[in-house]
Structures are given as C-alpha cells and as structure tokens.
Computed example of a mutant assay.
Amino acid sequence: MSTDASARDARRNWQEWHEQRVASVSEPYGPLSLTGTHWLADHPEGRIPAVPGIWTDEGEQVLLTAGDEDGVTLDGKPFTGTVALAADHAPIPASRVAHGDRRLVVIRREGLWAVRDFDPHAPARRAFRGIEATPYDPRWAVRGRFRPYGEQHSVRVENADGRARGLGLGGEIVFALDGAEHTLRAAVEADGSLWAVFADATSGDGSYRFRFLRPGAPADDLTVDVDLNRVLLPPCAFADHFICPFPPPGNTLPVAVAAGERNLAGA
C-alpha cells in the first residue's frame, strides 16, 4: 500500500473513531447523563436527597430499603422491602436499581460506597453539541515502549471532586516527539491495555485541563502504539459528578499536544 493510501486510511479510521466516540458519549446513559455521585458516608441516616429509598453502608454491601412510595424497580420489577447490593459492574442500562428512566448505580472506591444517578433527561445531555477534536495528523502517531515497574506503585493524587485517592501505576510509556523523549506514568488495565492521565502545554488553554491516553496492550517486545490523535476527554469533562484523577507527578508534558479531543463543542 502506498504512503498516500496509508495516510488516507489513517484519516478515515480516525474520523470513524471520532464519530463513534461522539455517539457513545451522547447515548441515553452515557457520561452526559450522570446527575450525581452520592457518597453514603455523607448521608449516615441513609436518605439521599433526590434519590428514592434508604441506602445504608453495611461494610461489604449496601442495603437498599424501599417502599411503594419510592417507585423503585429491582432487576426490572417493582420492588419494596430490603435488598443487599454489591457494586454494579454491568453496563449502566443493565444496572439493578432504577427509578423510571433513571438508573441508580452502586459503586465502591477505596472502601467507600456511593450511588450514581444516571438520567437520560439530564440538562448536560440536552445541551450537548459535540466534541471539539483536532483532525488526524500523522506526526502525533508514534511508536513507543512500555517500561513496567517491578511491582505495582500507588500514588495519591487529587481527584476532580477535590478528594485525594490512590492511583495505581504499573509502568511508564516512553516515546519521542520531534526528536525529544517523553515519559508518561501509566496504569495497566485488566486486559493488559495501558491508561495514562496527562496534561500538556495546551491544558486549560485550548484543551481541557487534563486528558486520557489509552493505548492498547504492549507487544511482546514491549513496544506500544502511542497515538495522540486519539487522546480522550475524561468523563468529568462531560459531567461534574465524575471523580476523575488528576495527572500524577511527572505526567505534565512540556509540549503542546494540539491533537485528539480538546474540549466540548461550545465550551
């Protein structure tokens, strides 16, 4: 295949990726529909404003107590009584607890329980006009290398909700741009793919304050494709109620990465 044909394919693939991404975030239960993350520790009496039922932290599970007046469904059926709940890991539409069109999703972070409220009628979803993204440019697609740590590291970083939490890191992605070497500390996902939270010279001035890079899993020789054309806005760019981690120390690039997703359209 000629160089020109390869470039056209890369641009077309990027455009398809971008269109799929816009469609995904604007789905009825995509990130734009999150209207609240309610930590049970902040509501020791069990009553969460605007969320039906009584939710109590029982250590390794959450107890939900609901009456007829709450209008709650469990596994698609009207529910009254008390049920023990674990953290939801299914896709949002398949979460166990609902109230009309809303999905009430149980999550756990560092031993703390919360209920997330996803509403397809959320104002942010109605106001969505798209994602501002820079068209594909081959200069931002490079081959890098993953340097795994000997053991898992964890650093405390501030999150978008103002609380500090642990961020697990499995190694470093090393790559070069315009002849200069750069390093990003990265987590290793369960499927072996990598995830890095980073800022750069455009952060807060032309791009959102930080973004995500999600390369695939490294090859057997630990090389990895670093395609900055596909950097992502974090979920908290779409709704204030996500708890995205800020970049760990060392993950602020000194260059302007004018690539990938930059901001919400109209932001």
Score class of each variant (00 low, 15 high):
4 D>G: 09
161 D>V: 11
222 L>A: 13
76 G>R: 04
232 L>G: 05
23 A>L: 09
247 P>G: 07
254 P>K: 01
244 C>I: 04
108 R>H: 08
142 V>Y: 04
172 E>C: 06
225 D>C: 02
45 E>A: 15
226 V>Q: 08
170 G>D: 00
169 L>R: 12
38 H>E: 13
23 A>S: 13
157 V>H: 10
102 R>H: 06
239 A>D: 00
116 R>Y: 02
82 T>N: 07
27 E>S: 15
80 T>M: 07
233 L>D: 03
153 H>M: 14
170 G>W: 02
60 E>R: 15
115 V>K: 07
169 L>E: 09
111 G>V: 14
6 S>F: 04
29 Y>V: 03
29 Y>I: 03
7 A>D: 09
109 R>I: 15
3 T>L: 14
140 W>S: 00
139 R>A: 15
31 P>H: 03
138 P>I: 01
189 E>S: 10
255 V>F: 05
134 T>A: 13
220 D>N: 10
156 R>E: 08
117 D>S: 08
215 P>F: 00
267 A>Q: 10
263 N>G: 09
196 A>V: 02
219 A>M: 07
59 G>R: 15
73 T>C: 03
33 S>K: 08
204 G>Y: 02
41 A>I: 13
223 T>E: 08
162 G>L: 09
105 V>P: 14
232 L>W: 04
264 L>I: 09
182 H>C: 14
89 H>D: 14
12 R>Q: 13
167 L>S: 10
80 T>K: 03
149 Y>D: 12
142 V>K: 08
53 G>C: 04
161 D>W: 00
84 A>K: 09
176 A>C: 06
82 T>W: 06
169 L>H: 10
82 T>P: 06
62 V>H: 05
223 T>Y: 07
152 Q>F: 07
7 A>F: 04
188 V>N: 12
178 D>T: 09
53 G>V: 01
15 Q>P: 06
128 F>D: 01
249 P>W: 00
45 E>L: 14
25 V>W: 05
157 V>P: 08
41 A>T: 14
257 V>K: 07
120 P>H: 05
27 E>M: 14
119 D>C: 06
119 D>H: 01
60 E>I: 12
128 F>R: 08
28 P>S: 06
251 N>Q: 02
143 R>L: 10
136 Y>R: 10
158 E>Y: 05
46 G>L: 00
171 G>N: 10
247 P>H: 03
182 H>K: 11
85 L>D: 08
177 L>H: 15
4 D>F: 06
